[in-house]
């Protein structure tokens, strides 16, 4: 993804935050990635990040599903966000294993607040060539029982987004 494509207009941030709330995600905005990481290690010490190479390897495709199933909270970083619907784009380079964003109980998502586009029109201009990519908008949800909204149908029960 070419960062130059993404010139976030400042006024997209409130819309993005509002959209995230609408789709059932929590949002915390902090100044700078360091403060986000500090916040996470203090408040979510059990959170698994895939930033170092060994952990990346540990959870890559050869990792057993049973081990993945035991994952509680994981931390991922999105490529960019979409203001109109709170969707965040992730691709094969964002995680060592495609199952991770779905199988973990809770996903903490980091996003550079300079990487927010207006709508899906702009979003698809930024989508890169990859084997697998996904827009994630809020936690897993269902309303299949009498239209009652329930989070955590199969995937994560909650999604916490840190904007920095």
């Amino acid at each position: 993804m070419n960062r130059d494509n993404l010139l976030t207009a400042k006024d997209l941030i409130p819309e993005f935050i509002e959209s995230l709330a609408h789709v059932g995600a929590e949002v915390i905005k902090l100044n700078g990635k360091d403060s986000v990481l500090a916040y996470i290690s203090e408040n979510y010490p059990e959170c698994i990040t895939f930033e170092n190479k060994e952990i990346w390897e540990e959870y890559s495709f050869s990792c057993s599903k049973e081990k993945l199933e035991k994952l509680g909270t994981i931390q991922l970083e999105g490529r960019f966000g979409v203001a109109e619907n709170g969707a965040i784009w992730l691709d094969d380079n964002c995680f060592p294993n495609r199952l991770l964003p779905f199988i973990a109980q809770k996903v903490i998502m980091l996003l550079d607040s300079g990487k927010i586009v207006k709508d899906m029109g702009e979003a698809y201009d930024c989508v890169n060539e990859c084997g697998y990519g996904v827009f994630i908008s809020g936690p897993s949800k269902t309303a299949d029982i009498e239209q009652s909204l329930v989070f955590g149908a199969h995937g994560p029960e909650s999604l916490l987004v840190f904007l920095y």
Binding site: S19, H22, V23, S60, F61, V82, E84, N85, G86, A87, R98, F102, D119, M120, G121, A123, Y124, V127, E129, C130, G131, Y132, G133, V134, F135, I136, S137, G138, P139, S140, K141, A143, G155
Partner: peptide, 29 residues
């Protein structure tokens, strides 16, 4: 896809987009 992903969930359930819009291109390792 921009056109269709903007329309689909809004028209189906009133959501701005589905929670997951997955693009499968190549098999996993």
């Amino acid at each position: 896809l921009a056109v269709f992903t903007r329309l689909l969930a809004r028209n189906a359930t009133g959501q701005p987009i589905t929670a997951y819009t997955s693009h499968y291109r190549k098999p996993k390792p």
